Simulated scan of single mutants.
Amino acid sequence: MSTADSQPRTQQPMHVFDVYARSEQGRILHFDVILPVNDPERALASARTWLQSIGHENASVQAENCAFCHTEAETPPQFEEEIRERGYAIYKMEGCPR
């Protein structure tokens, strides 16, 4: 088996969107959405889907609070499985449940 076969790393660029959402209680949730495509609408939809999955279905997140930040040359290893399973990954920052 070659080295390439033993390492299922995704060697494609990943696009990072910086997101700020406000919970029903007024708390700010700050996180990144990481996508294999540079698509602001998909980033916003992914942010909303993730918020619903953590019990914040009524959180407010608008397009102006979901901004393209930068592109990574390849998929960060810690996000590969999440991107394979959901099509996006979340990097939690301020106010997000751990």
Rank of each mutant, 00 (worst) to 15 (best):
E85Y: 05
C69Q: 08
L51H: 11
V61A: 00
M1S: 15
D32H: 12
C96K: 01
A4K: 05
E24N: 12
Q52M: 01
S6E: 10
R86G: 01
C96W: 08
E85Q: 06
D32T: 01
V16W: 02
N38C: 09
E64L: 03
Q11P: 08
Q12Y: 00
E80R: 05
F68S: 06
E72N: 12
G95E: 06
V19C: 07
A21N: 09
R27K: 15
C66R: 01
R48W: 05
G95I: 05
I54Y: 12
Q78S: 10
R22H: 10
Q11Y: 00
E72G: 03
E24H: 13
A21S: 06
P8K: 04
P40G: 07
P97K: 15
G26T: 11
D18P: 05
T3D: 14
T71D: 00
S46M: 02
G87A: 10
A43V: 07
A67Y: 02
G26F: 13
T3V: 03
Y88C: 00
R9P: 06
L51V: 07
S46D: 01
E74L: 13
E81C: 02
C96G: 10
G95F: 01
T75K: 04
T3P: 04
R9Y: 10
E80P: 03
S23W: 08
T10G: 01
P40W: 15
D39Q: 00
R48Q: 14
Y91R: 14
P76Q: 12
Q62M: 01
Q11W: 03
E94A: 15
R42F: 01
I28K: 13
E94N: 14
E81V: 02
L44M: 11
N58T: 06
V33I: 12
N38L: 11
S60H: 06
A45F: 10
F68C: 06
H30L: 09
Q7L: 15
S46I: 00
Q62W: 06
R98L: 09
S46K: 06
P36G: 00
M1T: 13
M1I: 09
C96R: 13
D5T: 09
C66T: 06
G26I: 14
C96A: 05
E64G: 04
F68A: 06
Q25P: 00
A21V: 13
P36A: 10
P97T: 15
A21K: 12
F79K: 10
C96P: 04
R86F: 05
L51E: 11
I28G: 00
N58Y: 02
F79T: 04
E24G: 15
I83C: 04
A45E: 04
S2V: 04
N38H: 12
N38F: 00
P76T: 07
G26P: 11
V16E: 08
Q78V: 12
I34G: 10
V61C: 10
G55H: 01
F17C: 09
Q12D: 11
P97S: 13
Q12A: 12
E82T: 12
E74G: 07
F17W: 09
L44W: 09
